[in-house]
Design a protein around this nucleic acid. Structure first.
Lengths: 362, 362
DNA sequence: CTGTTAGCGCGTTCAT
DNA sequence: ATGAACGCGCTAACAG
């Protein structure tokens, strides 16, 4: 059926081992022989069998990239940078690696399934991106899978999720964590410094590390401004935390719920930009002006935020840079400082959707 | 190192052949034996070696999905639906297939490289999505690769690009084409029916099938309304076609260029939604109102269009449905009508960014 | 420098 | 119903 090494060898009048050597170029071969083999390969349209090669050499050129949602630009941007870094490196020994983007849809089961599939394929590396599901049982299951992968030589990198200890004596995987907490804190501080006191917060989906970190940042800012859980205002602020998801619809619903709980809210911080746009849409439908009546802020700084009405104040997460770094890490081209954890900084981006509350203006 | 079939066999006190049989479940095995093998697998945390299995059985569970840009929601949505369809099918024989999203970045070379990589891996299927590069040499190169893939049993599906004839006696691959031309035509007809006559058009990147089809639809609408290439107005309309790309920046630049060519433009149709938002941004910066001074329309109906200011009039491309269909096709779960081509309809979505031109209003 | 010889881990005959 | 043996296509020692 398909043409094999042996076919090429026969055509070139050499042994299959020699063909293998010229193909991999990591062994001395006479120039003349090499040329003959090259021609035979051309003439026969030979393409190596990756499976056989992987089996014989015990190496693979597959790198798995797990994302929670490919349709979400957050992951699209990350995956794009990662894949670019992995597939690039022309001429380098890493060249020819296949970055495999696997879409878990945020489902813990799918995450485990993909990890198994990648283990089956003896992947060269695996990158887990985005917030982790914080269920102890699931975390343990993931850790167990990762430990096995690591033990069999697969490089594991965590990107955008907390460091994870592996069972047994396995060293913890390299991890690139985003400063979600710091970003969220600076964002809420921005709202506070504008004069807002009744600030609503729409969280991400429950049980996710990013959801928790961002909410913690929000609370930290409140507490630092004397709105801690002990105070009356702090208790009121807790009432203004609404559970959501990472989609636009939950932002829309959350905004309605928020105004039902307290019609005097003057600002809303959302778990991400998409949710923030849902919040804006709801406010608009209610006849409220942003930021005139209510300020709204997002998180991530995805490209569409700048074209929203009004342009969204948000926290920039350097997804491209993070993707590139994660790509280098999983290829083993760079290493992390001892401890294996690096934090990617986030940056407050003030735009038009936030302003001082109405009553403090002239 | 890793635990193998033989290890499991030894543990269960049977031959490796028997273990293989219970694992694949396609052969009668005594219930008791099966149970013992199952336990051994559990205890040893055995995971089959995909490479070895593929080599022995001459089948793979990899399905490649080539996209032009993962960071673009257009492809994200498509890939998400495709992957969902491929990885779903719980219990079915297709279950356990690994959908591999490969990001070509729109580069012809990368496209060929990925095709080679997938051929190396003896992929079970390949889906090429998005507009095709219309360079004869490249088209021939792709066709040659696809013919080889098809010959070795890989299922090939085209999604969102024109049908392609393969060299030799190979049957043409199944293809799902989008009605880009019809959609673009209806969109421009919409603008014409609102009373616009000076309509600008910002194209997609040069040499792409989608760019050409959408532009053709635009021109067809003009011609049907007596603004054909022969007429004076038609010639003027040709002057209002500006070359762009699929990114926001080229929309921004194109809008400036358009107004420089003719300050009386009252409407602009863009190659896609992202470009349309760039056009809106430029108009806004110029102090022009959308749609008061200039109407703007996009294409694709990506989620962010509804939150733009104003909500974008566009043409909906049913990406989710298309992805699902493509997924079923590549798995061979459904077939296309004779000829192997199906057209996915597109739909005009009128929203707030288009309105009658100023001078025809009260 | 090059050919020969073993496996890599599994599916699949062919026997039993 | 189960085991023994062979081969998938390739790389990696080991000779020469």
């Amino acid at each position: 059926m398909a043409v094999t090494l042996a076919d090429v060898a026969a055509r070139a009048g050499v042994s299959s081992a020699t063909v293998s050597r010229v193909l991999n170029g990591n062994y001395p071969v006479a120039a003349g022989t090499r040329e003959r083999v090259r021609r035979a390969v051309e003439e026969l349209d030979y393409v190596v069998n990756g499976q056989a090669r992987a089996l014989a050499a015990a190496t693979s050129d597959l790198v798995g990239v797990l994302v929670n949602d490919v349709a979400d630009p957050f992951f699209g941007l990350l995956a794009s940078a990662l894949q670019g870094e992995i597939s690039a490196a022309p001429g380098s020994p890493d060249s020819g690696k296949l970055a495999v983007v696997c879409n878990t849809g945020g489902s813990p089961e799918a995450e485990l399934t993909y990890l198994t599939l990648l283990e089956r394929q003896r992947a060269a590396g695996v990158v887990l991106t985005g917030g982790a599901v914080e269920d102890p049982a699931h975390t343990a299951a993931v850790a167990a899978r990762l430990a096995r992968l690591a033990a069999s030589g697969t490089r594991v990198v965590l990107c955008g999720r907390p460091p994870l200890a592996l069972p047994g004596d396995a060293p913890a995987p390299a991890s690139l964590t985003f400063d979600d907490r710091g970003g969220a804190r600076r964002l809420t501080e921005h709202l506070l410094s504008l004069g807002h006191r009744r600030i609503g917060y729409v969280t991400g989906p429950p049980g996710r590390s990013t959801t928790r970190h961002r909410l913690e940042g929000h609370r930290a800012a409140l507490e630092a401004h004397g709105l801690g859980p002990g105070t009356a205002d702090g208790a009121a602020a807790e009432e203004l935390i609404v559970r959501g998801g990472y989609d636009r619809a939950s932002g829309y619903d959350a905004a309605l719920e928020l105004l039902r709980r307290d019609g005097t809210v003057t600002a809303v911080a959302a778990a991400n930009d998409t949710v923030a746009l849902g919040v804006c849409a709801a406010l608009r439908d209610l006849g409220l002006d942003v930021p005139g009546d209510v300020s709204v802020a997002g998180f991530d700084d995805l490209p569409f935020g700048i074209d929203a009405s009004p342009a969204l104040t948000t926290v920039r997460v350097p997804l491209h840079e993070a993707g590139v770094r994660a790509g280098r890490l999983v290829l083993g081209r760079v290493d992390l400082p001892p401890g294996g954890v690096a934090t990617v900084p986030t940056e407050l981006m003030v735009r038009a959707s936030t302003a001082p509350p109405r009553d403090t203006r002239r």
